[in-house]
Design a protein around this nucleic acid. Structure first.
Lengths: 153, 153
DNA sequence: CAAAAATGGTTTCAAATTGAAACCTCTTGC
DNA sequence: GCAAGAGGTTTCAATTTGAAACCATTTTTG
């Protein structure tokens, strides 16, 4: 039985999130959800994804608590998909991915979109990683520490 | 001809990065590369991935300029895979993903690893999104603005 | 030095996933 | 009443995945 590999049980806080999200379509669904899309048909039109795939991905996102279904506000029999708090937590992942994309994937003369602060309409700052005391950290300034057996010392 | 969907040409700075990365395995390879792994065998042992898959993913990451091959420093005939500057730019994506994972995927009593500042050994701060003027922004405070036809007004 | 083992892959092939299209089941609108 | 739309599910061929076998070079060991 050759099953697709799952990182569900991986003892890694990168692998498990990736496993929960599922695949690239799912992250694009989350992106669209941040843009205010809520209905099956809206996602389908925006993404151009096959309906069976969209259906499976929405189900997975709901199962992992990233989206939840709510009754349609217009009283129709259908429901809508909205981000949970956990799902909104993916905001930083999307911002990071987008800033990386802006930096390395914008061809000259191409359409260009910025993420801007709604209030001022000005582009947001680049993400930065800071130490507890505020120092700016760059890749290589961090490591992983295991707090598994931390005593209350 | 039913081909796998590519977001290569998508006019979206989230879709294109996702397309370049390839799949979840690739991001775990990048994670390992940040942890200092460089050799085919090291990645294979760390990830437990099939060699053919690893081979294809490394090739893809190199093709997209995220990794590059360099001659092995011990003078052996083999080469090593190291992050390019573009690859190191994924640091923020990994930090975002990890913080999300720490928040929502840590079971009680489970092994727990923090990302810490190497210098102090203390956990790093959470990522924050800031407006140009420094205001802290939360999900919903941003939108996308199209600078395609920006006149020099 | 010869044999064995490790490194870094490629090839093969069955099983799983993907995606396009057809189909189904309500609700609405007219 | 009846056609259209929303929101899916089913079907099925093509593609991708992953385990294992294989192969060509080094490197180590006896």
């Amino acid at each position: 039985m050759v099953k697709r590999t799952s990182h569900h049980e991986a003892d890694c806080f990168i692998a498990r999130p990736l496993d929960a999200i599922g695949d690239w379509w799912s992250l694009l669904i989350v992106r669209d959800a941040f843009d205010g899309l809520r209905r099956f048909g809206e996602f389908q039109k925006s993404l151009g994804v096959a309906k069976n795939i969209l259906s499976a991905r929405l189900r997975n996102l709901v199962a992992h608590g990233i989206l939840e279904t709510v009754p349609a506000p217009d009283g129709s029999a259908h429901h809508e998909y909205v981000l949970t708090q956990k799902g909104r937590g993916l905001f930083y992942v999307l911002v990071a991915l987008r800033q990386w994309g802006e930096t390395y994937f914008s061809g000259p003369g191409e359409p260009y979109t910025f993420m801007v602060d709604t209030e001022s309409g000005r582009p947001i700052r680049r993400l930065e990683v800071h130490a507890e005391d505020g120092r700016l950290l760059v890749p290589g300034d961090t490591r992983l520490a295991d707090f598994r057996n931390r005593e209350n010392s």
